[in-house]
């Protein structure tokens, strides 16, 4: 056998290559199983970027189903609560071109929370069943209320309410949510506030 190989250089080379290939292939195969990393599946990573409103505006029942759909190839622009920022983050993660938000699924809005007008609530518990994050508290025939810190503003409770006593109010209002915004590129660097006569008369 060795003698034959030494006579046939072409055969020798082929055998050597095949042998090496088989050996390293086996090694790699073994390593792949033995040292397998339980990595974050891509849908988990996508889910971590979604805003978790659980609103279903994307057409899927919750953020996790949508993240699985994206992992299977659905488009990344179906999440109005996440808006441009989420689309950008998803595009970065998946290394695809960011697309504008698909208007079919809604438009980007200010974050809101649900607010139950408590004296109008009849205690039907329909909204409690609709809430995807268990953020509504109450029992049959008694008033319900929204835990504002847990509410995602998904608006799924609005529709089932038989007496329309649920409002969506802006979540970020008032001085504690304010922060400076980036300067605008413009000629004038200051605002003139018209407080003229009133101030002076009062003073």
């Amino acid at each position: 056998m060795l003698a034959m190989l030494s006579d046939q250089p072409l055969l020798a080379a082929l055998t050597a290559l095949l042998g090496l290939g088989a050996t390293f292939g086996a090694l790699l195969g073994f390593a792949a199983i033995r040292f397998r990393v339980e990595g974050n599946p891509i849908s988990e990573q996508i889910n971590a970027l979604l805003p978790q409103t659980q609103c279903g505006q994307c057409g899927y029942p919750g953020c996790r189903p949508y993240s699985e759909a994206i992992a299977d190839g659905d488009s990344i622009n179906k999440c109005p609560p996440g808006g441009e920022e989420t689309i950008q983050a998803l595009a970065d993660l998946l290394d695809v071109e960011p697309q504008p938000l698909d208007a079919e699924h809604g438009v980007e809005k200010e974050p809101v929370v649900a607010w139950i007008r408590e004296d109008e609530c009849i205690g039907c518990t329909k909204c409690i069943q609709a809430c995807p994050v268990d953020a509504i508290l109450g029992a049959a025939k008694v008033m319900h209320t929204v835990i504002a810190d847990e509410c995602t503003g998904c608006d799924l409770c609005i529709e089932p309410c038989p007496v329309d006593c649920i409002d969506l109010i802006p979540r970020k209002e008032g001085i504690s949510f304010w922060h400076w915004s980036l300067p605008e590129d413009r000629a004038s660097r200051y605002d003139v506030i018209a407080t003229d006569a009133a101030t002076r008369d009062a003073a």
Partner: peptide, 15 residues
């Protein structure tokens, strides 16, 4: 927002 969304995810999954 990240904290809120993590919290919401937990609550959604618990539900």
């Amino acid at each position: 927002e990240k904290r809120r969304s993590d919290n919401s995810r937990e609550r959604f999954e618990a539900r």
